[in-house]
């Protein structure tokens, strides 16, 4: 039987494609690469790589321990490279105003019951549930994507990350 090699990307080894123009503006395709963005970002800087009205996908570099976050809606994290721990705490009282969109950074260690812990490796997706506080930890640099809504922590630097010339 023929062996096939699945090509994953990583911070260390990624190969970026591109938009080949026939008759269009490459900016219309908002083309970037998650590993490229994570390589050039500060740890846990949550950079939007996709946006559709209020919803975003953020790409981030996981390295060391993040601050705590909370959101008034579910979010999901997908580990794209490395090993990323997620710590979850059930908040005693809501840390963000109801209806707040996106993740809110918490100033202090949240008060509440420990919910549990996830350890995500490449391809693993975890739930960041509404009403919980969470933080990330990675011993080695990793890369992740977060499915969420544009909020306080969302960084938009499209011109820096996207292909702009044909």
């Amino acid at each position: 039987m023929t062996n096939y090699q699945t090509r994953f990307g990583s911070l260390q080894d990624f190969d970026k494609g591109r938009v080949e123009i026939v008759d269009d503006d490459p900016k219309n395709y908002v083309f970037s690469n998650v590993f490229d963005v994570a390589s050039s970002s500060a740890p846990y800087e949550r950079v939007a790589v996709a946006k559709n009205f209020e919803y975003v996908i953020e790409a981030a570099r996981a390295e060391g321990t993040s601050g705590w976050y909370a959101a008034d809606h579910d979010e999901f994290v997908l580990c794209m490279d490395g090993e990323i721990e997620v710590h979850l705490v059930k908040l005693d009282k809501a840390a963000v105003e109801p209806g707040t969109q996106g993740a809110t950074p918490l100033a202090d260690m949240p008060q509440g019951r420990k919910m549990g812990r996830l350890v995500l490796r490449r391809g693993h997706m975890g739930l960041l549930p509404r009403g919980a506080a969470y933080r990330f930890h990675a011993n080695q640099p990793g890369a992740m994507m977060i499915q969420t809504i544009e909020g306080l922590v969302t960084v938009q630097k499209w011109a820096e990350i996207c292909q702009t010339a044909a």
Partner: peptide, 14 residues
Amino acid sequence: NRARVIMKAGDVSC
């Protein structure tokens, strides 16, 4: 025809 978009692992496009 407007474009061809070549996408590899980690690439994001609208």
